[in-house]
């Protein structure tokens, strides 16, 4: 049985790839398919997966603000709140951004450099 973390990742990958809302049943079938396609390789994500498990995963993702439910349809259809690229941009914004406490949240290998400084460094390297 895959861990919830692996399942969350697999579900998000499907939602990001699919671009449209899907029900828990559809997602379960897709997960089972992708497992069969891998056929015996490590990390069987969708093996013997119950729909309730998929629903658990979806509600965890919903709580984290990553997926949303379409209102008014039954069974509920789920979709990603924003694209994979948007989330990556959100992360990079935090990494490179100017929030004053950013330095306390994470430590970058190189802080910001000014254009002139970058120029000096490039000359140093014999680049450009």
């Amino acid at each position: 049985m895959a861990s919830l973390g692996e399942l969350e990742r697999a579900v998000m990958d499907l939602l990001w790839a699919g671009h449209e809302a899907a029900t828990a049943n559809t997602l379960r079938d897709l997960l089972a398919q992708s497992t069969r396609a891998e056929n015996g390789t490590a990390g069987h994500v969708g093996k013997d997966l119950a729909v309730t498990t998929v629903l658990t995963v979806l509600s965890r993702l919903e709580r984290k603000g990553l997926v949303e439910r379409e209102r008014g349809t039954r069974p509920h259809r789920y979709q990603a709140v924003s694209s994979r690229e948007d989330h990556t941009a959100e992360l990079m914004h935090e990494v490179l951004g100017s929030a004053p406490d950013r330095e306390a949240v994470l430590a970058r290998f190189i802080g910001s450099v000014t254009d002139t400084e970058a120029e000096t460094l490039r000359k140093l390297l014999g680049l450009s």
Binding site: L96, I110, S112, D115, L121, L125
Partner: peptide, 10 residues
């Protein structure tokens, strides 16, 4: 130098 010259300051 590589990271700094490739980071978004440049």
């Amino acid at each position: 130098a590589i990271v700094a010259s490739g980071s978004p300051g440049a």
